[in-house]
Measured scan of single mutants.
Amino acid sequence: MQRVNMIMAESPGLITICLLGYLLSAECTVFLDHENANKILNRPKRYNSGKLEEFVQGNLERECMEEKCSFEEAREVFENTERTTEFWKQYVDGDQCESNPCLNGGSCKDDINSYECWCPFGFEGKNCELDVTCNIKNGRCEQFCKNSADNKVVCSCTEGYRLAENQKSCEPAVPFPCGRVSVSQTSKLTRAETVFPDVDYVNSTEAETILDNITQSTQSFNDFTRVVGGEDAKPGQFPWQVVLNGKVDAFCGGSIVNEKWIVTAAHCVETGVKITVVAGEHNIEETEHTEQKRNVIRIIPHHNYNAAINKYNHDIALLELDEPLVLNSYVTPICIADKEYTNIFLKFGSGYVSGWGRVFHKGRSALVLQYLRVPLVDRATCLRSTKFTIYNNMFCAGFHEGGRDSCQGDSGGPHVTEVEGTSFLTGIISWGEECAMKGKYGIYTKVSRYVNWIKEKTKLT
């Protein structure tokens, strides 16, 4: 034993070699072989497995989906700052455009905790909710729209109204504003409101030439003092309507412009014939205590009207009353817009006519005020429907199939267009061939041609 100890002390290297040989010859039971080890760690190889990531292109799944990435790591994937920024906006807080917040056709661009709407022409605001041009839906104005110097929408209202708090709607500024039905039992019968379409306001006024200088022999019209197929109006439903009495009662109609003036057809009036105007009328054979009678003290036909040349060209006249009318729910003026808007309103496509005229061709006159909704007829169809001249200051309205029309005794009465609950004068009943005849239409004086003249002559002093 002493000898062994001496050998170990003198030859430590020998001992180490012996131990190493023993270990190498022993069977290893701690580690699995290569094949079995792979069965336990069965993990798919990654895209760049075996390579240094710093030297390969980034992978979106590896960089940002398996674990949260930084902007720089995302930049490695896209290799483009702009594309990385677009991805980053949604990656950080989701897609803010998912709810489609942009209105009126706006395009949404996502941002971090926010979004941006790219608005089409005519709109602005956070969600493109603000109209900035009158060309689109009248700028959301209830009545009139004008573009300011910086191309912003400025709404306005006709006389007797003021802008509401929203700067879009119009509200009454006087007790009985024009064009409004205020009798409670008839307010439910107000005709369907007309909503502004998209309009090209630059070209809204037709490029028409008034044929002022045409000389033409007097034409022989049949029954051209021209509501057939209409309905009984309720008291106060058309408070701007008046009836004219002269040699015979209810020979023509008219509309209240203001307390002192009536507008009617020029062919209705004769110099030297006494005319009485009755406002607030409903049943011409009954006294309903809503009527107001006034005498006409002055007749002003349009300066281009000449019955000797043509009885229905420039067929418009103004009547001055001896005493002002007292405005109330049964006696209310009709609204008159400017030339541009009167023309736009007419193009809405349908209007209402009213009167006490004959209820059928050569038949009896109506006792109760009649009204009828009539569609506008395109000019080409209008011209083809008659052998008589249709001037540019006239328009056609009615039904091709016949059966409904204005008729004798309705002449001078109103053709009105309702705009968001307020009625505007767009025409004056003038003439036609018979009444409600198939293929024939009622012919009306186009008020847009005469609004400046009306307003100039009827100013209240």
Results as ranks from 00 to 15, higher is better:
P177I: 01
D150G: 13
T194E: 13
E35T: 13
C435F: 03
V195G: 15
D150C: 04
E142T: 08
V416I: 08
E288V: 06
D200Q: 08
S114P: 03
C252Q: 00
V242A: 05
R140Y: 05
K146A: 11
F123I: 04
F360A: 08
N36H: 09
G363A: 07
K137E: 11
L372E: 11
G236Y: 05
T276N: 09
V4E: 08
Y450A: 01
M394G: 03
T209A: 11
H267E: 02
I316S: 01
V195P: 10
T389S: 07
Q185G: 15
L20T: 03
N245D: 06
I112Y: 11
E401T: 11
S385C: 08
T422I: 12
A366P: 14
L244H: 03
F55I: 09
G21W: 06
V248N: 11
A207C: 06
G413M: 14
F196M: 07
G179K: 01
H267A: 03
S184F: 12
H289M: 09
N147A: 13
Q2S: 07
G105D: 04
K260A: 04
G349N: 05
F78G: 15
E27A: 07
T158S: 07
E231Q: 10
V92F: 09
C69N: 05
W240I: 01
V92Q: 15
I262C: 03
C128L: 00
N304A: 09
R162H: 12
V447N: 00
T276V: 08
V174E: 09
S11C: 12
K438D: 13
V4P: 08
V174A: 08
A9D: 05
G355M: 04
D200W: 10
R191E: 14
N113G: 07
E323I: 08
T426D: 00
L460M: 15
D198C: 06
G246R: 05
H302R: 02
F388N: 10
L211G: 11
Q185N: 09
I344Q: 09
Q143L: 02
D249N: 04
H282W: 14
N59I: 05
V248W: 08
A192R: 05
C382V: 02
T381H: 13
M65E: 13
Y391H: 15
C128F: 01
S354A: 14
N113Y: 07
I256S: 01
G427F: 01
C141D: 00
L24Q: 03
S107R: 06
A307F: 08
G21V: 15
C28D: 03
N113S: 05
A207F: 07
V174M: 07
S217V: 14
T186V: 13
I390C: 04
D198T: 09
E72F: 07
M6Q: 10
